[in-house]
Design a protein around this nucleic acid. Structure first.
Lengths: 214, 214
DNA sequence: CCTTCTTGGATAGCGGCACTATCTAAGCAG
DNA sequence: CTGCTTAGATAGTGCCGCTATCCAAGAAGG
């Protein structure tokens, strides 16, 4: 496959593909000579992954580069590699640890993890972006006067845990071992909007059930 | 409160507040004379709402304006107003109805709603952005080779429905009738990142439980 | 062989967006 | 009177994901 063909198969313009090559999101093709390069199926797959991350997942290019770095890092074990790739995903605004709301949020989230018995998550509090995001969100709500304590969070956390179980079951059902990491990243990115849409739809359904349409 | 004080209380620069005033995200203060305006508590609350939508919810300014328009529209009934405000929220890329993946996604989602018995949601298929978002997400996954049929979606949808029930219970527990709409919008925006963070954390917990840390 | 197209590589520009900076005339506070 | 603040207007900034253009070297077709 040459550049133009890659473009045709993927629906991405050659200019954009060149941009991705420059940015290191796509490995260079096999250079045949100074003016020809050959691309394979793996380039097409990678290109689709990149597009999904950027367009559907709205990840900035720099984050995509980072995620791919972990996806491709053979020196790591499977689950570490998966975690590393997923951890690169969210754009976490660093919480201001001096802020009183942030400190209160830390306490609430810690209490939540205790209550749920999420011992593994407890070990990750210092490094997991998910933990930090949670603290930031709880702090933002507190600042606006909404008190999301552990007991109000717990039922949501239970539901999200069940969702995570479904996620991992789906992942394990995936036949090809080699593509699992890639699949996991894709799932993390693409399932998110899907879940959000389902959530909204469920809210509409439930609102209509309770109050009708007027 | 004068502009500078509003800025100090909210932590938002005067330049940015002026920008929001210009963009119509914040109602003008009570004009005392040509060079003085007085702002009240409601301005502070509105400003915090706007910041939450923009910074936490990452909504574009134009969407925030639209949402606020519905929040403030007294001519609508309560649940309609709520729906209108929430419907303005998502940035839905219009699905291309000619695309075969989109048509297949439509069929899958319709099958899902039948299976779940979400009769109300069925009535909204033509207008609800949540429905459209769902179709777009399913189509995107299909295009990448992932087959999310109704039976795979159903368990997720069940969980999201339970989440929605929690949402509405929380909303009803809110004492002040007047602020319910605002609360609903805030909840829709701020609970989203919170749920996402919980979801990620649950994934990390479950991954660690299944595979340990290596 | 000649013409036309394509390639990698480089560089500059664009359009959208959320601000941010600067200016002005008017007014207030000490 | 002096300095600071205000509303209002306008222009600029910085980032980001492309997009457009140019180039010299080479490939492809007749």
């Amino acid at each position: 496959m040459r550049l133009a063909e890659l473009s045709r198969h993927s629906g991405v313009s050659t200019a954009t593909i060149k941009y991705y090559l420059r940015e290191g999101l796509l490995p260079p093709g096999r250079q045949i000579n100074a003016t020809t390069a050959e691309y394979g199926e793996e380039h097409l797959r990678r290109l689709r992954l990149v597009r999904a991350m950027i367009q559907v997942g709205r990840l900035p290019v720099s984050t995509v580069r980072e995620v791919l770095g972990h996806v491709d890092d053979d020196s790591l074990g499977r689950s570490i590699r998966l975690g590393a790739a997923l951890w690169a995903l969210p754009q976490v605004p660093e919480p201001d640890e001096d802020d009183e709301y942030v400190r209160a949020a830390h306490r609430e989230v810690a209490a939540l993890l205790d209550r749920l018995g999420w011992q593994n998550a407890k070990l990750l509090t210092t490094i997991s972006p998910a933990y930090r995001s949670l603290v930031v969100a709880v702090a933002a709500l507190r600042r606006l006067g909404y008190d999301w304590g552990a007991e109000r969070l717990a039922p949501y956390a239970e539901l999200m845990h069940r969702t995570a179980v479904l996620d991992l079951d789906n992942l394990e059902a995936q036949p090809s071992e080699a593509e699992r990491i890639e699949t996991a990243v894709l799932a993390a990115i693409l399932n998110e909007p899907l879940l959000r849409a389902l959530h909204r739809l469920a809210q509409e359904e439930e609102t209509a059930r309770r109050y009708g349409f007027e």
